[in-house]
Amino acid sequence: MFRSFAIALGMVAQLAAATAACAEEPVDTARTIIREQITAFLQDDAETAYSFASPAIRSKFPDKASFFEMVKRGYQPVYRPGNFAFGRSKVVGDQVLQEVLISAPDGKDWTAVYELVKQPDGSYKINGVMILQSASGPAI
């Protein structure tokens, strides 16, 4: 009887681990995509950076050159981050929201919130980024 209980507990633990892994999978995928896009920006690789854009973004910027220029002008902390780290994330249906904390080369801190959406083929694409300059100053 004890052996059956131990086996059942082991199966429950495996199921819980598998469920947790599935829950984290979209977040891990989103982080990989964001990391690869930032790497493409740092290497001035417009084609690769553009490949991560969702169809909605591609409809607004129909070619890689216009997309790349928009990012250079309006999203400098994302285009040329100093250091960055992943913050909080949230999965909502077929959407992943991922916070990225950026320390820009000029010393300013930024928070970028990425929205990635699942595509019909199962992949995720970046559907938008909102950047906010982080409040800085002495701690209270």
Rank of each mutant, 00 (worst) to 15 (best):
V27K: 08
P77N: 04
P77F: 05
V71E: 00
D121E: 01
I126N: 14
L42V: 06
P62S: 02
I57C: 04
A112L: 00
T39Q: 15
E25F: 12
A56L: 11
R31Y: 00
I140F: 10
R73D: 11
D28R: 13
D109E: 12
S134Y: 01
Q95M: 13
N127M: 03
V27G: 08
V96D: 03
Y79N: 10
Q14K: 11
P105M: 06
V129S: 06
K72V: 07
P81V: 03
Q43N: 15
A53F: 04
F86S: 09
R88C: 05
S103R: 10
I126K: 10
G107Y: 03
I140G: 10
F61C: 04
K72C: 00
D44T: 09
P77G: 06
P138Y: 04
A40V: 06
P62R: 01
S51Q: 06
D28Y: 11
M130K: 15
K108G: 11
G128P: 08
R31I: 01
D28L: 13
F52M: 07
D45Q: 10
E25C: 03
K90L: 12
L15E: 08
D45A: 09
T48D: 05
R88L: 11
A135D: 11
I38Y: 06
F2Y: 14
W110F: 09
W110K: 00
V71G: 02
A18M: 14
Y79D: 08
A8S: 15
T29I: 14
V71T: 10
P138M: 11
Q37M: 10
K90A: 13
E99G: 05
I34H: 05
G10S: 12
Q98A: 04
I57S: 05
I38E: 00
I102R: 03
A104D: 12
E115T: 15
Y124W: 04
T39F: 09
T32C: 07
G137T: 05
K90P: 00
N83M: 06
E47R: 12
A21I: 07
V92S: 09
E36H: 14
I7Y: 04
Q95H: 08
V100Y: 03
A104L: 06
K108L: 12
A6N: 08
G93W: 00
F41T: 01
Q98T: 03
A135W: 10
A23T: 13
Y79C: 08
E99S: 06
Q98P: 04
Y50P: 07
M130P: 02
Q119P: 06
Q133S: 03
F84V: 05
L116K: 01
C22L: 13
A46M: 08
A139I: 13
Y79T: 03
F2E: 15
L116I: 07
W110P: 03
V96C: 05
F52S: 07
S51W: 06
M130R: 15
R31F: 00
R3I: 10
L132H: 13
V113R: 09
P62Y: 05
L15V: 15
R35G: 10
F68C: 02
S123E: 13
R73K: 15
Q95T: 15
A16P: 07
A8R: 11
A20N: 10
F86R: 08
V71P: 03
G82N: 02
P120D: 04
D121M: 02
A18T: 12
D109G: 14
A53V: 09
A112P: 01
T39L: 12
A13K: 12
R58A: 09
G122M: 01
T19W: 13
I131S: 06
Q76H: 02
A53K: 05
E99K: 05
R31A: 01
G122H: 01
S134W: 01
